[in-house]
Every structure is written in C-alpha cells, then in structure tokens.
Amino acid sequence: MSVRNVIFPAGRQALYEQNRYSPAIKSNGFLFVSGQVGSRPDGSPETDLTKQVRLAFENLNSILDSAGCTFDDVIDVTVFIVDPEKNLEAIWSVIHEFWGPAPHPTLTGVGVTWLYGFQFEIKVIAKLSGV
C-alpha cells in the first residue's frame, strides 16, 4: 500500500484523529476532500442552516488552502442534504457566495435522512496546482 499524503487544516487535526479519518488526500495530481460539514472547532453542529452551510464552505476552504488550492481548482462536487425539498432553497442561497464564476464544477446532489446532526455536507475533488 502506498503512503497517503494527508492534508490537515490548521487547528483541526485532533478532531480528525478523534473521528479516525483524513480530511484530504493528495494523489496523482488530485486532492480528494472528505465531506465537510458546518462544524464548530469542537466538532458540534452550527444550528442555523445558512450559518452551517457557510461554515461547511469555510472548513472546506481551509483544507483547500492547506493543499495550495482554492475553490477555483475544484472539478467535482457532491453535496448531501437532509430534507432537500425543505432545505434546498436556503442552502442554494448561500452557495453562490463561495461558488465563483462559470465554468462551474460538476455537481451531484444527494438527499439523505441523517448526517450526524448536520443538514448539509460537501465533498470535492480538486486538481492540484502545477500538476
């Protein structure tokens, strides 16, 4: 098995180690980012939905930055939404703040029934700069 080149954002390594997963892995010119939620520094969910989505993007951007990327390098996005019929409009009203101009990355949206107390999760694949 090859060694995993793990990316940890500043100040959150203990949280990832506690939960036993890597926030992101560099491999073959790509960055594979685990699903990011709107968690506070202690791991608890932000209760307000729009604040939770903003915090999920801030957590995602922290990982991208740690790998030398920005959201402009993202090529594929998967979002998980609890009760999308109820929550999609509120979530989509926040996403444009972080998404950037076209061309946009590919997108897969998945409606789910449970996200460990969260309402929104985003995972991405990004192309590493200079590779």
Rank of each mutant, 00 (worst) to 15 (best):
V82E: 06
N61L: 06
F71H: 06
F57H: 06
A102D: 13
P84G: 03
A102S: 09
P84V: 09
G68D: 13
D73R: 05
D73I: 08
P101Q: 14
L60M: 04
E97Q: 12
N87P: 08
V79A: 12
I75F: 08
A90G: 08
P84C: 04
F98V: 12
V82Y: 04
D83L: 04
N87C: 07
G100H: 06
E58F: 14
E85K: 10
I63D: 02
T78D: 10
D72L: 09
A102C: 15
E89N: 13
V94K: 01
N61G: 07
D73E: 08
V82R: 03
I63M: 05
E85Q: 11
A90V: 11
N87S: 06
K86I: 12
I81M: 06
E97A: 04
D76Y: 05
N87E: 08
S93H: 04
E89I: 15
I95F: 06
T70D: 02
P103W: 01
W92S: 11
A90I: 15
H96D: 15
N59I: 14
F98I: 15
L55S: 05
C69D: 09
V77E: 05
I91K: 02
P101M: 09
G68T: 10
V77Q: 00
T70M: 00
W92Y: 11
D65K: 08
V79C: 13
D65T: 13
G68A: 11
V94A: 02
E58L: 11
T78W: 03
V94P: 03
